[in-house]
Computed example of a mutant assay.
Amino acid sequence: MTHLVTESPCNFQKTGRAVLKIVREGLQQLDQYINKDFAHACKIIYHCRGKVVVMGIGKSGHIGKKIASTFASTGTPSFFVHPAEANHGDLGMVCTNDIVIAISNSGETLEILTLIPVLKRRNIVLICITSRPGSTMACAAKIHICVKVPQEACSLGLAPTSSTTAALVMGDALAIALLNARGFTQEDFALSHPGGALGHKLLLRVEDIMHTGNDIPQIQPEASLGQALLHMTSKKMGVIVICSIEGLIKGIFTDGDLRRILNLNMNINVRNLRIDSVMTQFGICMQPRTLVADAVNVMKSKNVTCVMISRNDKLLGLVHIRDILRANIT
C-alpha cells in the first residue's frame, strides 16, 4: 500500500518553539504567587496530622494525580480522589484530619463545588489552586493559590497547556518546600521507591552483597606467597586478604601486586617469600552499612576492583566489582 507524502502547511519546529516560549513566559508569572498564601498552605500541610487529598477533573485531574504522587514520594502522605467519584461515595476516603487540595483552572468545576459544603461541615481544610482569585472555589477555600498565566499555548486558546503546566509546577513547589522543611533525606526517598532502580541504588548496602566466611580468600601473614597464590586462585577473585588468627586485617594482595613483583624480579621464590612481606598494608576498608553506590565511587576513584568490609579492623566481608555489577549498581 502506497502512502502519499505531502508537504504540511505547518512549520512544526517554529510552532514547537512558540509553544515553549509561551509556557516559559507563563511560568515566569508564577513568581508573584509564591507569596504569603503559598507559605500559609505549606505550614498547614506541614502540620497536617492526616493526609493530603488532591482533587481535580479533566486535565486538572491528571495534574492532581501527579501532584499527589510527588507529595507521597517526598514525605507528605497523599492520594488522589476523583471529584465525580467523591460525589458518589469516595468522599468517605477523606477523614477529619485530612486536607483537600482542589485544582481547577476556572475555579468553577461543578463536581468540586458540590463537595465544598460537605467539606466545610466536616471542618476539613480546603486549599484551592485556580487561575481566578474571584472564582467560587477561590472564595470558598481557606487558602487560594493563584496560577494565572497570560495565555494558553494552544493556538485556539482552548486546550489547557500553559495553565496545566503552571498548576503542575506550583504543586512541585509545594512538595519540595515541604521536603526541605521535613529534612527529607535520600534514604527517606528510597524507602518510598524500593522497587525502582533509584531506590535499589539508595538502599543497597555492602553488607547485603559481600562475601563472608569461607567464601572470603584470606590467609595468615606467615603463609608463603605460593600458598597465598593457590588460595587466591581457588576463590577466583584476583585478591586475597591477609588476616591474623583473630581475624584482624593486616593487608591485601592482588593479582596486580603479583604482576608488579614479577616485573621487578622474575626469579622470586614463591615458597620462601612470606606474603606479609609483599602485601599492601591494611588496604581499603568500609563499614558494613556503607551504601553500594558510595562503594562504587570509592572503587572508581582508587582504581581498585575489590574492597574489604570491616568493623574495628576485623574482617567481615569482601565486595568485588563483579558483585556490584550483578546488583546492577553502576
Rank of each mutant, 00 (worst) to 15 (best):
F189H: 04
S78R: 06
H211K: 13
M55D: 02
E85T: 00
M1D: 11
Q32G: 08
S301L: 11
R122N: 15
K201M: 12
H47P: 01
D208K: 09
F184T: 13
G196S: 11
S60A: 15
K14E: 15
E7N: 13
R24A: 12
G283Q: 01
L229R: 05
I103K: 02
E246I: 00
A166Y: 02
L204G: 08
V94G: 03
K36L: 11
H3T: 14
T185C: 10
L20N: 06
A140T: 02
I242K: 01
R17D: 12
S234I: 01
S163L: 05
T212C: 10
G195N: 07
N263R: 08
A167I: 06
F282A: 04
H47R: 12
C10G: 00
S163Y: 02
N105W: 02
D323V: 00
A141S: 13
K59S: 09
H211L: 14
E207M: 11
G238Y: 12
D313R: 14
I112N: 00
L229M: 15
I176Y: 15
R289A: 09
Q29F: 02
N312K: 14
S69V: 01
I44P: 00
T136F: 05
A173V: 08
Q287E: 15
S277R: 13
Q227M: 15
T96D: 08
S106K: 05
C285K: 15
L119D: 02
Q227F: 02
N97M: 03
A177W: 08
A102E: 01
R289Y: 08
Y33I: 04
A138W: 00
D276E: 13
R182W: 09
S192E: 03
R24S: 14
R24W: 01
I268S: 07
H320L: 11
G56R: 00
I127N: 02
K120P: 03
